[in-house]
Write a protein that binds this DNA or RNA. Sequence first.
RNA 1: GGGGGCGUAGCUCAGUUGGCAGAGCAACGGACUUUUAAUCCGUAGGUCACAGGUUCGAAUCCUGUCGCCCUCACCA
Length: 499
Amino acid sequence: MNTRKPDRLEAARLEKLHRIEELGLDPWGQRFDDHIPIDEARRRCPAEAGTDGDVVRVAGRIMLRNNRGKLKFYHVQDWTGRIQLMVSRGDLSEEQWELIGALDLGDLVGIDGRLRVSQTGEKTIFAEKITMLCKSLAQPPEKFHGARDTEMLLRQRSIDLIYNEGVLARMLKRTRIIHSIRQTLSGQGFVEVETPVLHSVAGGAAARPFITAHNTLGIELYMRIALELHLKRLMVGGVERVYEIGRVFRNEGIDATHNPEFTMIEIYQAYGDYRSMMDLTERIVVEAAEALGEGLVLPWGEERIDFTPPWPRRCYAELFEEHAGCPMNDPAAVAEVAKRLGIETDGVHPDVVINDVFEATVEDALVGPIFVTDYPASLCPLTKRKADDPNVAERFELFIQGMELANAYTELNDPRLQEELFQTQLDGLDEEDSMAKTDSDFLTALKVGMPPAGGLGIGIDRLVMLLTDSRTIRDVIFFPLLRPESVGGPPAETPAGTS
RNA sequence: GGGGGCGUAGCUCAGUUGGCAGAGCAACGGACUUUUAAUCCGUAGGUCACAGGUUCGAAUCCUGUCGCCCUCACCA
């Protein structure tokens, strides 16, 4: 963005701004009471030609103009929709006409006028008074093709929201989904809490953290990569049904399904297990889909996703055998398949090889919604083992369209086993790739006694993607992370805030 | 991080073999009282992402840099 450049288009708008000021009007507007949403104005507009409707007041942005001299048409948009405005020289005072002449595309105006269809049948407000609410100094995008440049749209999301149909509606669906989740959980007796974002140990997941620092304490801190360990402390503390919806931060790659900061919900239920969490997951997602009011079969590109419950529940070992073509407890056969797929096996923990084969053969085939249950225990250091098989963890993941949407455990509450698992690095993983980082404060809390519990995590951004037919995470986050723009050359040497 | 693609007016896009930088919309001036991407006449608007190089001559060819998109790796 080159802000130094004097802009001829902005100059033309400033000239009109001065004309508005010379009329004694405020080009930046004032409080404007008692206007109705534009979709309500549309509903109240009579359908028959020649019939007068109510006099209404609306406020919105000028999107289109069609100038016939002494008769002008505008399309005005608010966050509920658009309506046509007709301005006739004969209906307005000299001062009002001067104001009309100083309007630009993109300006915000208030309108008082009567609802009536135009001669071509378009619902129209016949203007009686125009109120200047805000001058726009920026040239809007091309009126027919709109703005298409993805980089510009991401850097100037405001423009995307105003001029690209469906962008704002999709983001509003996101808030409805999150509202629905809160309602579902509240109805089940869960309470929402907030826990620290700054951690001295970034635990609860396997991910590289962002590093920051506290100046006066003189310590290094990490942005949280999961909500898990603090919520479990609350379970110890007697908060029996608890959840947090919060931002977590992972210092990793960016692509269509990953943003460095994203929104997770984690939910813990005392005296439950992973099966209780499967029921809850199904309920949360189904009710969120219902909250959008478009049924349970939703579009996904050319395909459709059917969210109608109950969803299939298949165990990991069974799916493995089905898709990999060999039993997962036959190391020689697994190694054979891994070699065929080009997966590294030398010096790698056998369970890691199994999981690599699983990801390569099974995950893409999981159209879902489908619960995959009972994972190899060594992959799950925070999970309780099955009573009759210590090699299998009571864990499920929910897959939809090959995307991992939810992850849940029967939570491990044995502090001695937990400590052992923290200290035993999984073969084939280095420190920063392992989930097993010792959080001694957490272990101290576990010793007090945490009830047997089910725990669940859902990636909110991905859930919104699946429910809104969005192929990239950028479509469901207002401001996804972008590299700062620089005009040629290397980035500035001095970081912001140090001068 | 690897590989591929892209970057030209405020916006959407053309730009041939290396030979004067183009169109539509928007803007500005004019005509027009029922338009729907209105129409018509006229005017103005460019660091061709940035920095070098080759060449008589570069938006175009070469090198480097910046940014975005796709893809692979990592990850949820």
